[in-house]
Design a protein around this nucleic acid. Structure first.
Length: 210
DNA sequence: TACCGG
DNA sequence: ACCGGT
């Protein structure tokens, strides 16, 4: 593996774990066992390093959405996969990292914002349109508006974790409930029936596993 | 690694 | 005092 990729990988790990600002260039070089000079041969400054880390991280997230969209049988199944992808993607983004980017690294923050628009919003919008064409989702709803609302909803739960009684509900429980509620607001009768088939299959799979 | 400047 | 950059 290239030195540059090792730096991006390791620095990204450290920053996800401890935060962008708290990890210093000295920390990164120590951890990799290389000199700071080597890092600065590949990256102009810390801002440049963080931009490139963000770029490679978001590329991987984009691939996840992309691969999920190609392997779908119908819009109902696709909605389930994309929503799972959305939850995992948002879970990976640590809150304090996003705050650091927003305050101190505006270029990287812009990358994340356009990722939300170009990848998250688009793939949800597309699957809703497809569901309407297949007759599984109600045609009265505006696809892009619903996609937008859905993203904000998932994000709100991540951002306001503290305002929920966490001894009563885990994050995933909340997200699963909200997905169920959102999906059923979308479904026609046909969509509802197909969704029930999939959830029954999932239950059977879990039974055989346990 | 030591050092400077912000 | 600390940390990015030389």
């Amino acid at each position: 593996m290239e030195v540059r990729d090792k730096i991006i990988e390791k620095a990204g790990e450290l920053m996800l774990q401890y935060g962008v600002r708290t990890v210093t260039m000295d920390d990164i070089s120590r951890d990799l066992g290389i000199s700071k000079k080597t890092i600065y041969q590949y990256f102009k400054d810390k801002k440049d390093l963080i931009n490139q880390i963000t770029d490679s991280f978001l590329s991987m997230e984009r691939d996840r959405f992309g691969s999920v969209e190609t392997e779908c049988v119908d819009s109902v199944h696709s909605l389930m996969l994309i929503s799972q992808c959305l939850r995992e993607s948002m879970k990976d983004m640590k809150l304090n990292v996003l705050n650091d980017l927003q305050k101190f690294y505006p270029e990287a923050w812009k990358m994340y914002e356009s990722f939300k628009k170009d990848t998250m919003l688009c793939s949800i919008t597309r699957v809703i349109i497809r569901g309407q064409e297949e007759g599984y989702f109600r045609k009265e709803l505006d696809p892009e508006l619903m996609a937008y609302v859905r993203i904000e909803q998932v994000q709100a739960v991540m951002l306001n974790q503290h305002s929920l009684p966490r001894e009563k509900y885990t994050l995933t429980e909340v997200q699963m409930q909200l997905f169920d509620h959102f999906a059923h607001g979308l479904f026609t009768i046909e969509g509802h029936q197909l969704f029930n088939q999939y959830t029954k299959e999932k239950l059977k799979q879990n039974e055989t596993l346990n």
